[in-house]
Nucleic acid binder design. Structure first.
Lengths: 215, 215
DNA sequence: CCGAATCCGCAGTGATACTG
DNA sequence: CAGTATCACTGCGGATTCGG
């Protein structure tokens, strides 16, 4: 990308990750390493040449790593480098701000991917309310399945079943909720199926209630 | 801008402020309202049509306001709306990350503007160390003049002379320090002229020492 | 099937000239 | 001062094709 000619952190950031689709690729990689075709299906609409160009640029800039996957899947896997992972606070801050600018419901054709959902969980997590909390949830909404594990007030969220048995499984009804906001509303109204320690639903709502774009 | 087709805060953020030059325009407006020509001179290299296009888009999206300036200067002034101001935490987070990716010294042709310098001050400010601090500084480096006022641990930083008399005036020598990093190094080594409460130099260094891209 | 490379039409950008 | 106008160029979107 062409340079902005300013010795400034923001300018450098935009030079490195400001091109079209780059941040969304990084959002997906921030959740877990992914193959080229995983990224393609998780970013409907991205041209294949743009994806491969971005991956090459991000790799060259030390933000993303190209790895040869080990035995079970064998193939190419893209993953964040430490420099890439250190970008996550900025991605979450941008995501929080963007969330305040979202319409109440998805526009025509707008989808929610498991990775977007996971990053939303991380973004809205109320760190300051979580001190001392230990609990784990598994969430089901449509065919999206994500987990959230809070250990000593620190969050680990990802796609799929969590690392251990969840304390509470929350299944949202109806199963095609359009947005995170609607989903939290359903939780508040009890429109959910619960399996496990049902009293942890309130804790979930408290910890993941979106409170605006504060720093 | 074309949409990404995802109902996701990050995607919406990039749709709204992800286009080329947009974040740098917002960085300047986050410091203070500016006229069209101020923005042009503060963003050397931006094409005039791109600036006017961005301003129109940002205005349409409710992030920037076009105001008719009052009596003294009379003319058009662009300013942040509340939605625009709420983007600042994200700009600072990106700037902090980008700062970790900067070379030690500016590349050929890279400049430092007063607005970039001000945003750097805001970005590196160590909030957690500032509890209870009340102090004000005025900084001179070359022809850049900025102020930093800490009131009860909260920072106000801007271009020009501060709102009141500064407790300490710091003038950096040599007067064309290439980077914020070099400037803090000069401060640590005593390569500065001080006027006022000299003991506040240590406080300044402590509060504005860059400690990496932590959230 | 995965992981791209290639080609084309078009929109966004950069540079400069010009105007109310 | 505050923008438009113009035009060459690059990058993106969309589709197809190709090699392992």
């Amino acid at each position: 990308m062409k340079h902005f000619g300013q010795y400034c952190g923001l300018a450098r950031a935009m030079e490195l990750v400001g091109e079209r689709w780059a941040m969304l690729i990084l959002r997906d990689l921030a959740v877990h390493p992914r193959r080229y075709s995983d990224l393609l299906t998780g970013l409907p609409g991205i041209p294949t040449n743009v994806l491969s160009t971005r991956l090459k640029e991000l790799e060259q800039n030390g933000i993303v790593e190209r790895q040869i996957a080990p035995a079970p899947q064998r193939g190419v896997v893209y993953a964040m480098t430490p420099a890439g992972h250190s970008l996550e606070p900025a991605l979450l801050a941008l995501g929080r701000w963007g969330a305040t600018q979202l319409d109440d419901d998805p526009r025509d054709g707008e989808i929610v991917t498991p990775e977007a959902f996971t990053m939303t969980l991380r973004a809205v997590f109320n760190d300051d309310l979580a001190a001392g909390v230990d609990a784990s949830w598994q969430l089901h909404s449509g065919d999206i399945e994500v987990y959230a594990v809070v250990t000593d007030g620190k969050l680990d969220a990802g796609v799929g079943p969590g690392p251990g048995d969840p304390d509470l499984v929350i299944t949202f009804r109806p199963d095609n909720l359009p947005s995170f906001r609607a989903l939290m509303q359903a939780a508040r109204c009890g429109l959910v199926d619960l399996t496990g320690r049902r009293e942890l639903l309130d804790t979930f709502i408290r910890l993941f209630e979106f409170r605006g774009a504060s720093a």
